[in-house]
Structure formats: structure tokens, C-alpha cells
Design a binder for these strands. Structure first.
Length: 298
DNA sequence: GGGCCCGCAGGG
DNA sequence: CCCTGCGGGCCC
């Protein structure tokens, strides 16, 4: 039987959500087994006031367990020593929802005037979590995410950064965890008969980890290098900004796999599960996006 | 809204 | 050089 696009998407989302849940379960495994505590899904409706006004520093257990999930069972000894220092970011500080903070260091200058090398792992000096730009170009100028279009900035030991812009409709975003789809599998130049010069297009063939970008994210999972994450206005998630692009801090890739993507043909796509590092300012919830698109990010 | 073209950063 | 890529602007 053939599923409709909506049904397929629904199924994909469910599966992706399970992957994230799986990571969370591991994360929540306490030292002292409190028996099958019925996991009541806290019925918290994230209203603006709740997230905004109160937002007490959430004492979650996220990070500690994360470190318990070696991607390949190998060393994780002093891996954190290589991480950029994140101790200087304030804990639990809610980010502003409406105040736009334009950080771009090269205002009105089309030329690249970067102060820092974007090809580094971890935070960019001087760029706070929550920083906002109107365009990818400005974000690129501030070295947070170099590519103007591409979602993945690949490096030798992992990706330096990724952009969440809602390009794949079956990805799940929980803010502190999300799934992400790799690159490739799109025919950007059309056919000989009907040549195109596109930057994005529908999936028309399989993605693979041989693709440099996808390989880099796989490496991220293996090395544990932190990945900078920006969320864009097109992201159908309550954690997506209404306009522009926002730097949401550092994440680690905890898992990678392939699955059948959406669209005609159901071509394979590379998928990744990201988990946010602890000790960073909370991510704001966007009231304007709550309830969007079947409530992705629920 | 959709279609089309385009610049740019980065990698091969 | 070439090609790619979850942009952006313009036109209709």
C-alpha cells in the first residue's frame, strides 16, 4: 500500500522522534534506578510567559549522561579538553524573543571582513549564544556558519556548523535535541534538455556518507567535536526564529543512520541526531510558531 | 504565491 | 578552473 506524503512524513517524524527519545532515556538513567517511574509527559504548555518570564535555570541531567554514550565505544577520556570553553556563557539565561541583536561585524560591506576563522570547533569569540542575523551572509561574515547556502560546513574532524532551515520536512526539532538530514541527492543543474542552475531542489537520488558534508557529520559523531548550530526562520519548529538566523550554541552528533527520505522515489537520506551541550543559555520558544505544521517539536 | 537567475564560500 | 549547497532577490 502506498502512503500519502503526509502519512509518510508522519511516520518518518515518529521514527525520528523515537531516536531522540532513545537518547533521552539513556540520558535520564539515574545512578540509582528509581523503578519504573511512569514517565508522565509533563503537560507543560510552553507559553510565552512561562518560557520568558520565569525560565529558571533548568537543572536537567542532560549533559552528564550524554557523555555516557560513546559513539563507538572508544575513548572519551579528555575529549572535553578540546572543546571551546563554554563556561563563560551564562547559565539558564533566557534569550530574548523579540529583541534582535545584529552582530555582523561587516555592516554594509559586501567584502568578507571576518575577524575569526570559521573553520574551528566550538564557539566563535565574541559571538554569544542567541546572536541573531538577518541573512546567512551576515552570519557567514561573523564566522559562525560560513556557507551562504549550504547547511553543513564540513571539516576534517567533523562539521564546524550546521544550519536548520526546514529544508527537510521530516526532521524533528526539540530544541535541545534534533534530527538533521545530510546533503546531496538533489539535482541542481537539471537535465540537458532542461538545464537549471539551482541551489536547492527535490531529492532525486540517494544520499551517502561518501559525500563530503555527510562524511563530516559522521566524523562529528566519532570524534565528539562540538558543532555550532543556527536556526533559521524557515524552520517549522517552535524553536525557530520568526526572522533571520539565530546562533543556538554547541551540539554534539550522537547518532547517524540512513533512512528513506520523503518525496517521490523515497531516496535514501543520511540522518543525524544532535544533542545540545549543557551549560548554555536556554533556547527561546517562539509563540508564533507553536502549533505550526503538525506541531513539530512537540 | 511560483519561477528563475544570480553571487558567494568552500572543496575538488 | 569546475561543481555543489536547507539563499535571496527579482519578476510575474
Amino acid at each position: 500500500m502506498t502512503l500519502s506524503y503526509a502519512e509518510e512524513r508522519e511516520a518518518n517524524i515518529r521514527r525520528n522522534r523515537l531516536v531522540l527519545c532513545d537518547l533521552k532515556y539513556k540520558r535520564l538513567v539515574p545512578d540509582k534506578e528509581p523503578k519504573e517511574q511512569p514517565r508522565v509527559k509533563s503537560k507543560r504548555r510552553a507559553t510565552e510567559t512561562e518560557e520568558h518570564v520565569e525560565a529558571p535555570p533548568r537543572k536537567t541531567v542532560r549533559a552528564e549522561v550524554l557523555l555516557d554514550i560513546p559513539s563507538d565505544g572508544k575513548r572519551r577520556s579528555n575529549r572535553l579538553a578540546n572543546h571551546a570553553p563554554i563556561s563563560d556563557v551564562r547559565r539558564g539565561t533566557p534569550l530574548p524573543l523579540t529583541v534582535k541583536k545584529i552582530v555582523s561585524s561587516s555592516l554594509g560591506d559586501t567584502k568578507n571582513t571576518r575577524k575569526h576563522n570559521p573553520k574551528v570547533y566550538g564557539n566563535i569569540p565574541g559571538i554569544e549564544v542567541g546572536s541573531w542575523w538577518a541573512t546567512r551572509e551576515e552570519c557567514s561574515n561573523d564566522s559562525v556558519h560560513a556557507p551562504w547556502v549550504g547547511g553543513i560546513a564540513p571539516g576534517q574532524d567533523g562539521a564546524y556548523s550546521v544550519a536548520l532551515s526546514g529544508g527537510y520536512e521530516d526532521d524533528v526539532d526539540d530544541g535541545y535535541a534534533f534530527t538533521y538530514t545530510g546533503a546531496g541527492g538533489r539535482d541542481l543543474k537539471g537535465t540537458k534538455a532542461a538545464p537549471k542552475n539551482l541551489r536547492t531542489a527535490e531529492q532525486s537520488f540517494d544520499q551517502s556518507f561518501e559525500h563530503n558534508h555527510n562524511k563530516a557529520l559522521k566524523r562529528s559523531a566519532e570524534t565528539g567535536k562540538p558543532v555550532r548550530v543556527i536556526r533559521g526562520f524557515k524552520l517549522q519548529s517552535r524553536y525557530g526564529p520568526s526572522e533571520g538566523y539565530r546562533y543556538d550554541g554547541l551540539y554534539e552528533v550522537k547518532r547517524y543512520w540512513t533512512e528513506k527520505g520523503l518525496g517521490k522515489g523515497g531516496h535514501l537520506v543520511c540522518k543525524y541526531a544532535f544533542i545540545r551541550l549543557e551549560g548554555q543559555p536556554d533556547i527561546p520558544v517562539n509563540p508564533a510558531k507553536i502549533g505550526d505544521a503538525d506541531d513539530i517539536g512537540e
